[in-house]
Design a protein around this nucleic acid. Structure first.
Lengths: 192, 192
DNA sequence: TAGCATTGTTGAAAATCCTAAACGTGCGGG
DNA sequence: CCCGCACGTTTAGGATTTTCAACAATGCTA
């Protein structure tokens, strides 16, 4: 079989995109293959851009995640830069010097969020089964500390640090400290 | 023409979706095949759902329209019901009895429109080469009459009638009458 | 260290898709 | 009426993708 890349830069690099999505959802090639009802070899070849899968194959694979074709082609999986914000990166939007209103992810568009205050007792953990639901999710740690896992990314957040991610990426919160953690969080759409 | 409105079942039905898109843009199988650099037979087979095209093939075909993969899977080609509105279907939103503000396509979401008033002299015609540009487009006929063509659909609009469609679907306006036609139109994004 | 499990990567065969070339239909002009 | 032309459809065969099975690399545990 002739080697290497066959297609001009492919249709936006389906292989890399699939691999990224698969990793974000924490699946191995074999696990995804099992769920999707295809072979692991097929996924390997696709991720290397050695083949251009048929729509039906790609559909089967995405069903194993699950993720729609529309979302697969539409979603902007640009993690690291837009997921975490250092405390000093938050935008102050209040004109009243007695009040501070600092906004997370000011640049994110089309927002319709609802904020909450959450408290995690020491050792509290949303659990091993990663959370997933529709919409977007955002939060700021007020006191204490919190380990947040989003897809393949994980970070210890201290007071002032924040996060912003799509809620259908598996996520998990843990308080590894010895004092309660207070977190201001928001979700969208407004219902939880 | 067997035209076009199955709305729901379409996610899986790539063939029907492609055929609908092709017809909306006024292309024959052969013409699209020529532009895309594939054979007309391939398009025929795909439209009949006798094969499930590879991503690279589908990408090549869509490039001939042109339409992105993301748009192809994302777009809701549900026009028909939402393209034309009879005069009495417009929504009155004014509370001042001295003023009437009647909204077109009240149900359409994510709107960011800009309105214009246009006047078409008798016989005026935007031309045979169908218009296409980004964004969405909306209008109401105030006086006179106007023949509006949107994709495969065409209709004579009288005063009070209106339209709403995506501007990248080829479209054309003609005034077939003997008096000027006044049209209140809007487009999005605000720049034209 | 050896053994075992799990990961991603290959080669050859089977399955599926795409092309080239034909076919049948419908339409309009001479 | 016949011809030419354009349309969508079909078929055989070459091209590409997918499966099946084996492989090397890594990590874990005894």
């Amino acid at each position: 079989m002739s080697a290497a890349l066959q297609n001009d830069e492919m249709s936006d690099d389906i292989g890399t995109r699939l691999k990224l999505v698969r990793q974000i959802f924490g699946l191995t090639q074999r696990e995804l293959a099992r769920r999707a009802g295809v072979t692991n070899g097929a996924i390997s070849l696709i991720e290397q851009n050695r083949v251009s899968p048929s729509i039906s194959s790609l559909k089967k694979i995405l069903d194993g995640i699950p993720l729609s074709l529309a979302d697969f082609f539409t979603l902007n999986f640009s993690p690291s830069d837009n997921v975490f914000f250092a405390g000093e990166e938050l935008t102050e939007i209040s004109y009243d010097p007695a009040i501070s209103m600092r906004m997370v992810g000011r640049k994110v568009k089309d927002r319709t969020l609802q904020m909450l205050q959450e408290t995690y007792q020491p050792g509290a953990d949303t659990g091993d089964a990663m959370l997933r639901h529709n919409g977007e999710e955002c939060g700021i740690v007020v006191s204490g500390c919190l380990i947040v896992t989003v897809g393949v990314q994980e970070r210890l957040l201290n007071p002032g640090d924040a996060y912003y991610f799509r809620s259908d990426i598996p996520h998990r919160f843990r308080n590894p400290g010895t004092e309660p953690c207070v977190l201001i969080s928001a979700n969208s759409p407004p219902s939880f």
